[in-house]
Design a protein around this nucleic acid. Structure first.
Length: 256
DNA sequence: TCATCCCTGTGG
DNA sequence: CCACAGGGATGA
C-alpha cells in the first residue's frame, strides 16, 4: 500500500502525538516482533520522527525504531483500548498508543543503532541528478523509478501516475528519454507526490490504507487500477501490462 | 535482470 | 479456484 505520500501522511499525523513524548512500553502481539520490546531501553523519549523513502524512523535515545509498512502495514493512533484485527505491535504513550497493524505480515519493525538502508535521493529532494542517473540504465523507466536505490519513495501507484503526468510510456528504457522527457519527469515527480500528500494519499477500493486517525486518502489515480476505463484526458481505454513483475497502467495515447 | 518467495485476503 | 494486491530480498 504505502508509498511516499501515505508514509509522509502517516508521519505528519503522528508527529504531534509522539514527538517529545515518552514511550512507556512496547508490546508485541505477533511473536515475530517479540525482539522489539526487548531491544528497547524504556521508557525513552521520542526525539525524532522521520520519513526516509518509505521508511518511518522513531528516534529513541541512541536507537532508531525503524518501521516499513510494505504492502499492507499501517500505523494507527488509538487513545482507547481498541485493537483492530491484525494488530502486531503496540507502542504505549501517556496519551495514547501507536498500533502497528498489518494483515499480510510483510511489514517490518526493527531496532537499530544506525539507519543503514541504501536508498537513493528522496523523491521530494532536489532532482538535478536525474538526467545523468537515467543515462546509466537500460531498464524500463517504470522499473527504474521503482528501484529505491535510484530514487526513494516511489511505488507502483505513483510510478504509473508520474509517468502519465509526464506523458512517458512506462516501457521506454531510462536511457532513451530525451532532455524534454526528462524535464517533464523531473517536474511530474514532485507535482504528483505533493498533490497526493495534500490528499492524504490514496485509499483504494479495499480501504486498506488510512491515516493514523482513520481518515481515507482522497487521491484519485488517473491511470492506476483503471484498466479498460477511458483515459480522463483523451478517452482512450487505459491499458494494463506487466513490467518488473508488477501491474502497470498507462494511456497508450497520452504516453509515448 | 528475472522469477520466486514472503503472507493473507479479496474479488472475479 | 485462480489471479492479483500499495514492497522488497534473494538466488539463479
Amino acid at each position: 500500500m504505502p508509498e511516499l505520500p501515505e508514509v509522509e501522511s502517516t508521519v505528519r499525523a503522528l508527529r504531534p502525538k509522539v514527538l517529545g513524548q515518552t514511550l512507556l512500553r512496547a508490546h508485541a502481539l505477533d511473536p515475530v516482533f517479540d525482539p522489539v520490546p526487548k531491544s528497547l531501553s524504556l521508557p525513552a523519549q521520542v526525539r525524532a520522527l522521520e520519513r526516509r523513502g518509505k521508511y518511518i524512523l522513531f528516534g529513541l535515545g541512541d536507537l532508531w525504531l525503524v518501521v516499513h509498512l510494505r504492502m499492507s502495514g499501517r500505523l494507527l493512533w488509538e487513545e482507547g483500548q481498541a485493537r483492530p484485527p491484525h494488530t502486531r505491535l503496540v507502542l504505549e504513550f501517556p496519551q495514547g498508543n501507536v498500533l502497528f497493524v498489518d494483515v499480510r505480515r510483510l511489514g517490518t519493525v526493527e531496532v537499530v543503532p544506525e539507519f543503514t538502508e541504501e536508498l537513493g535521493p528522496d523523491a521530494l529532494s532536489d532532482l538535478s541528478f536525474l538526467p545523468e542517473a537515467l543515462k546509466g540504465s537500460r531498464a524500463p523507466i517504470k522499473v527504474w523509478l521503482l528501484d529505491q536505490r535510484n530514487i526513494a519513495g516511489i511505488g507502483n501507484i505513483y510510478a504509473a501516475e508520474i509517468l502519465f503526468r509526464a506523458g512517458i510510456d512506462p516501457r521506454r528504457p531510462a536511457n532513451s528519454l530525451g532532455p524534454r522527457a526528462v524535464q517533464r519527469l523531473k517536474e511530474a515527480i514532485p507535482e504528483v507526490l505533493t498533490e497526493a500528500i495534500e490528499a492524504l494519499g490514496t485509499t483504494l477500493a479495499d480501504g486498506a490504507y488510512q491515516t493514523p486517525e482513520g481518515e481515507a486518502g482522497d487521491y484519485e489515480p488517473w491511470v492506476y487500477g483503471r484498466e479498460g476505463l477511458p483515459c480522463k484526458v483523451c478517452g482512450t481505454p487505459i491499458e494494463r501490462i506487466e513490467l518488473g513483475g508488477r501491474g502497470t497502467y498507462f494511456c497508450p495515447r497520452c504516453q509515448r
